[in-house]
């Protein structure tokens, strides 16, 4: 009796899992499949495969330029966000500062506000101050959305067990900065790298802030947004598949660099 019930539960579970996984992968599967479509429309029946749409994407200088822009913005803004987040996390985790709760609330506040509002606020401010829209303004916006994330991730990993090591470094004559860079930062490397890769993918995929704060130089999601005006088109499929592929590469890198390498260390805590 018991065995029968277990069997039923397992069968139902498998069935449900297949359904939901199917639902999750359906759009991405269709997107990638029809990027190899050998006709003008990415609809049934599938003809192909062909790589000509990828060629079209790579020979479209506006798309490749925007890809480079996206890369620059993502790299720059993620480095700044991780740096700000790490320093703030260290400061708040190690020192007794007045109004700690308020500072934490302020630092994480941007997480609760929609990107649209953050972007619009910056746009109004930059307009009022006469700051022209550029990759710089997009980068500033991306630092605003990613700093709280980096801060929260790194802060949550600061435990008391690292304090002793930092004290030891201090007793052996290391200055505060030396301790920070040579002792604390390497100890916190898993969460620093994790937050860096997360910030990188968030910035890489971000649309609305880039859309509001860009003018001539745009990022890849904004350029793809422009492509959507031509309706369903295998070239858009190819561009979208490439964006997806790059995000996945970043994730796999993060998985290999951060979690595999540091897994033992994290678990031991």
């Amino acid at each position: 009796m018991h065995g029968v019930r277990r069997h039923v539960v397992n069968t139902l579970s498998a069935f449900y899992a297949v359904l939901i996984y199917g639902f999750i992968f359906l759009p991405v599967g269709v997107l990638v499949l029809f990027s190899f479509q050998d006709s003008r429309l990415p609809i049934m029946p599938f003809k192909g495969p062909t790589l000509k749409w990828y060629e079209a994407v790579l020979s479209d200088s506006r798309l490749t330029d925007s890809m480079i822009n996206s890369f620059i913005v993502a790299m720059g803004s993620s480095v700044v966000a991780v740096l700000l987040g790490f320093l703030a996390a260290f400061g708040l985790a190690r020192y007794v500062l007045p109004a700690r709760g308020l500072q934490r609330a302020l630092l994480t506040a941007p997480l609760t506000v929609s990107y649209l509002i953050i972007g619009l606020g910056l746009l109004i401010m930059f307009n009022a101050m006469g700051v022209p829209r550029s990759l710089w303004t997009i980068g500033i916006g991306h630092v605003v959305i990613n700093t709280p994330l980096c801060f929260a991730i790194i802060y949550s990993q600061f435990g008391d067990h690292q304090v002793n090591i930092e004290r030891a470094a201090h007793d052996l004559g290391a200055s505060e900065w030396q301790t920070l860079w040579l002792v604390t930062a390497p100890m916190m490397m898993p969460s620093i790298l994790a937050s860096f890769f997360l910030a990188l993918t968030f910035s890489w995929d971000e649309f609305i802030i880039s859309f509001l704060l860009s003018r001539f130089d745009v990022t890849l999601p904004v350029e793809i947004w422009g492509l959507l005006r031509s309706g369903l088109n295998p070239k858009t499929n190819a561009a979208g598949s490439m964006v997806f592929l790059i995000s996945i590469v970043l994730l796999v890198l993060a998985e290999l660099l951060v979690f595999r390498r540091f897994n033992g260390r994290v678990n031991r805590k």
Binding site: F25, D205, L228, T236
Partner: peptide, 27 residues
């Protein structure tokens, strides 16, 4: 990781992908 893989595409790309599925001539 598999269950959240398509999470890592931008809103724009993901919505366009659904358009391919749900459009009049879609899948």
């Amino acid at each position: 990781l598999l269950a959240i893989l398509p999470f890592w595409t931008s809103y724009v790309v993901r919505s366009y992908a659904w358009l391919l599925v749900l459009a009049k001539q879609g899948i």
